[in-house]
Amino acid sequence: MTEPELTSFCAVVLAGGRAARLGGSDKASIEVHGRTLLERGLDAVVDAAEVVVVGAPVPTERPVTFVREDPAFGGPVAGLLTGRDRLLRRTPTLAVLAVDMPFLTPATFRRLHAAAVGHDGAVLTDPDGRRQLALVVDTARLDRVRPAPEEEHGASLRSLLAPLDLVDVAPVGDEHRDVDTWADLRDVAE
Results as ranks from 00 to 15, higher is better:
residue 3 E to W: 06
residue 4 P to M: 11
residue 4 P to E: 15
residue 5 E to F: 11
residue 7 T to H: 13
residue 7 T to I: 13
residue 7 T to K: 07
residue 8 S to K: 14
residue 8 S to C: 10
residue 8 S to R: 12
residue 8 S to I: 02
residue 10 C to I: 10
residue 10 C to R: 04
residue 11 A to I: 05
residue 12 V to F: 08
residue 15 A to N: 10
residue 15 A to Y: 02
residue 16 G to H: 11
residue 19 A to N: 02
residue 19 A to Q: 00
residue 21 R to A: 14
residue 21 R to V: 01
residue 24 G to Y: 00
residue 27 K to C: 02
residue 27 K to Q: 01
residue 28 A to I: 07
residue 29 S to K: 06
residue 30 I to S: 07
residue 32 V to H: 04
residue 37 L to Y: 01
residue 38 L to W: 05
residue 39 E to I: 02
residue 40 R to V: 08
residue 41 G to S: 15
residue 43 D to W: 03
residue 46 V to D: 14
residue 48 A to M: 09
residue 60 T to S: 02
residue 62 R to A: 03
residue 62 R to T: 03
residue 65 T to C: 00
residue 67 V to M: 02
residue 67 V to E: 04
residue 69 E to C: 01
residue 69 E to P: 07
residue 70 D to F: 04
residue 70 D to Y: 01
residue 71 P to G: 08
residue 73 F to A: 06
residue 74 G to R: 07
residue 74 G to L: 10
residue 76 P to K: 06
residue 76 P to E: 11
residue 77 V to Y: 15
residue 78 A to P: 05
residue 78 A to Y: 08
residue 78 A to W: 11
residue 81 L to Y: 11
residue 82 T to C: 07
residue 82 T to A: 09
residue 86 R to G: 06
residue 88 L to R: 07
residue 89 R to E: 11
residue 89 R to F: 00
residue 90 R to K: 13
residue 91 T to V: 09
residue 96 V to I: 14
residue 97 L to I: 09
residue 97 L to W: 02
residue 99 V to F: 07
residue 99 V to W: 00
residue 100 D to I: 00
residue 100 D to F: 02
residue 102 P to K: 00
residue 102 P to F: 00
residue 103 F to A: 03
residue 104 L to S: 00
residue 104 L to A: 03
residue 104 L to P: 08
residue 106 P to V: 11
residue 107 A to N: 09
residue 109 F to L: 02
residue 109 F to K: 11
residue 110 R to C: 03
residue 111 R to F: 15
residue 111 R to W: 13
residue 115 A to I: 15
residue 117 V to G: 08
residue 118 G to I: 08
residue 119 H to Y: 13
residue 120 D to M: 02
residue 123 V to A: 14
residue 123 V to D: 09
residue 123 V to S: 09
residue 124 L to W: 12
residue 126 D to Y: 10
residue 126 D to W: 07
residue 128 D to H: 12
residue 129 G to S: 08
residue 130 R to H: 12
residue 131 R to P: 14
residue 131 R to V: 15
residue 131 R to G: 09
residue 132 Q to Y: 07
residue 132 Q to W: 05
residue 132 Q to K: 14
residue 133 L to T: 08
residue 133 L to N: 03
residue 135 L to V: 13
residue 136 V to F: 12
residue 137 V to F: 13
residue 138 D to F: 00
residue 138 D to E: 14
residue 140 A to Y: 06
residue 141 R to A: 15
residue 141 R to T: 06
residue 144 R to N: 11
residue 148 A to N: 09
residue 148 A to L: 12
residue 149 P to T: 01
residue 156 S to A: 12
residue 156 S to G: 07
residue 157 L to N: 15
residue 160 L to P: 15
residue 162 A to T: 13
residue 163 P to I: 00
residue 167 V to L: 14
residue 171 P to H: 09
residue 171 P to E: 12
residue 175 E to I: 15
residue 176 H to A: 12
residue 177 R to T: 04
residue 180 D to W: 07
residue 180 D to Y: 05
residue 181 T to Q: 11
residue 181 T to D: 11
residue 184 D to Q: 07
residue 186 R to L: 10
residue 188 V to C: 05
residue 189 A to L: 05
residue 190 E to A: 06
